[in-house]
Design a protein around this nucleic acid. Structure first.
Length: 58
DNA sequence: ATAATTAT
DNA sequence: ATAATTAT
């Protein structure tokens, strides 16, 4: 499943369209939780995590 | 506190 | 080993 780009706020505070390097669900047992993506800011090279839309394919 | 993940 | 990510 191809990883699609998402609009995310980078740590430097800029809005960017990026594709996550990795996606997973972060959820305690019995709770819905959230989807998380691992991104790399192309501006700075810094990695950061960001919430993904609930319907983003994992 | 809890869940998974991994760059740092 | 820890920070950081959300929502409950």
């Amino acid at each position: 499943m191809a990883e699609k780009k998402v609009k995310v706020k980078t740590p430097s505070g800029k809005e960017a369209e990026l594709a996550p390097e990795k996606v997973w669900v972060l959820a305690p047992k019995g709770r819905k939780g959230v989807k998380i993506g691992l991104f790399k800011d192309p501006e700075t090279g810094k990695y950061f995590r960001h919430k993904l839309p609930d319907d983003y394919p994992v």
